[in-house]
Amino acid sequence: MSTPVEAALESPDDVIAERRHLTNLAYRLLGSPAEAEDAVQETYARWYALSRERRAAVDNPAAWLTTVATRVCLDQLGSARARRERYVGEWIPEPLPDRTEWGLSDPADRITLDESVNMAFLVVLEAMTPAERVAFVLHDVFRYPFADIATMLGRTPAACRQLAASARRRLRAARTTPPSTPGRAALIRDFKEAWEAKDIDALLALLAPDATLVADGGGLVGAVLRPLEGATRIADYLLFIATKAPALTLLERTVNGTPGLVAQNAGRTVTVAAFDLSDTRVTRIWAVRNPEKLRAWQWGEEDGNVMPGTGTDTASAEE
């Protein structure tokens, strides 16, 4: 007969089942699927580094894993801020695809696409201090009580409540539009068609006068290094791109849970654009071009498979 310790170790399903939750939490804290995966891997490494007796003595493995993952992410956030100060150009969180739109399977640890991962929301999170971000995400997104958050952060519940309140003020100041805004998909479609037609009047009608475009090339591909402000500057830039790269194909795709656009060249994704709206106009565009952030948008490049819906061999496609 197994001892209680052995029985606990022979039934690890409750521990493994936490992987999806931890991945979702880590992405919202870090803004990068790769960094989130690293944080989750580190969390499990620490769990399995415990002795058999210490693992069996943990009353609530899920809470233990969440606490450790949060602390790992908090450490990463501190180092990430230093790395991003040296980043070439603007830094945008890594965009997430809806894999079902490409006819691909959805693994159990796939990040859930909801309003807490839309690009506007993540960009505001980036402006928060690491402690604010952790307190806000844990409480307002995942509904952890401040008493639990205090244990994870090593602060008092009152201090954690103040951190979350400060984060909410930042979010309100950003005035982001809820991702469920009616007509969002139709507006993005109109924007795509105006861009394809090189119709500057139509683009200007769809862009708010004070609209902003931010591009992230990471110094690896061409991209504007500073935000473009104003509808006219953005429309002129988009027409320049359309003229310079006439072979680009624009696809309507879900980006971080909301309607966005994907630009492909010979079947290979070269840009993913997310949008924020106000009424019937585009107020902000985030264009991710850094190829290291577009790996989740490429399929079949390693083995020469065809990308869903393109009929193109992506292994030989060039930007």
Rank of each mutant, 00 (worst) to 15 (best):
L250A: 14
G89M: 12
P259T: 11
A17G: 11
L251Q: 11
T176F: 09
A296H: 03
L206P: 00
A49E: 06
I200G: 12
V68K: 12
T100I: 01
D75P: 09
A165G: 09
D216M: 08
R81F: 05
R52S: 14
Q76D: 06
N290R: 04
T156H: 08
D279R: 15
E37W: 09
V68Q: 03
A45H: 13
Y44S: 03
L77T: 06
N60G: 01
A49M: 11
F146W: 02
L261C: 04
A158S: 12
L171E: 00
F121Y: 14
N118L: 11
W286S: 01
D75H: 02
G267L: 04
T100E: 00
D313V: 13
E53G: 06
A315C: 00
R284H: 15
W47Q: 07
A8F: 13
L22A: 00
R54L: 12
P308E: 02
S51M: 07
A159P: 08
P95C: 11
F275E: 07
Q41W: 00
V282P: 01
L213P: 07
I111A: 01
D14A: 15
W91A: 01
T271D: 03
P227D: 11
A131L: 14
E90K: 04
L25E: 05
R71T: 00
D201I: 04
E318Y: 05
L30H: 00
R84E: 02
L203Q: 10
E301G: 06
V221A: 07
G183L: 09
A69E: 01
A45P: 04
F136W: 01
G217I: 07
E319N: 05
Q298E: 09
R268M: 05
A17C: 00
E35D: 10
E10A: 15
W299F: 15
A263Y: 09
R28K: 05
L220E: 14
D98G: 06
D14N: 11
V282S: 03
A197H: 12
W47P: 08
